[in-house]
């Protein structure tokens, strides 16, 4: 029961960070700021969700898959954030800013 409550709290806090990321995407002034808001809030949100769902998982195999999902999203979103930031900086340089 306590474990369920803990898992639910983790997932809820994770969802809160997703909402925060979306607000950042909508409200922040320029591309790099929005990138900053998204990558961090998203990463944290998914991490917490994974942790919460893993606590509820039935078998060890499910836990392994959840850990793999977290690992791949974390690495690929970090790399994607990096690629987008590079792209934005280059476009800005090419524009003569």
């Amino acid at each position: 029961m306590l474990l369920d409550l803990l898992a639910l709290a983790l997932i809820a806090v994770g969802a809160f960070f997703f909402v925060a990321g979306t607000i950042g995407l909508l409200r922040f002034p320029d591309t790099l700021c929005r990138l900053h808001a998204l990558t961090k809030a998203d990463g944290l949100g998914l991490g917490l969700t994974c942790l919460g769902v893993a606590l509820l998982a039935g078998t060890a195999g499910e836990v392994v898959r959840i850990v793999l999902i977290w690992f791949f999203v974390a690495t690929s979103s970090a790399v994607c954030g990096h690629l987008i930031a590079r792209h934005v900086r280059r476009a800005a340089n090419a524009g003569g800013r």
């Binding site: 791949f72 690495t75 690929s76 790399v79 990096h82 690629l83 590079r86």
Partner: peptide, 16 residues
């Protein structure tokens, strides 16, 4: 030119 970080990532992601 996608950079050093992407190269490392593709080395991990492609086999996965």
């Amino acid at each position: 030119v996608l950079g050093e970080i992407y190269r490392g990532f593709s080395r991990l992601a492609l086999p996965a």
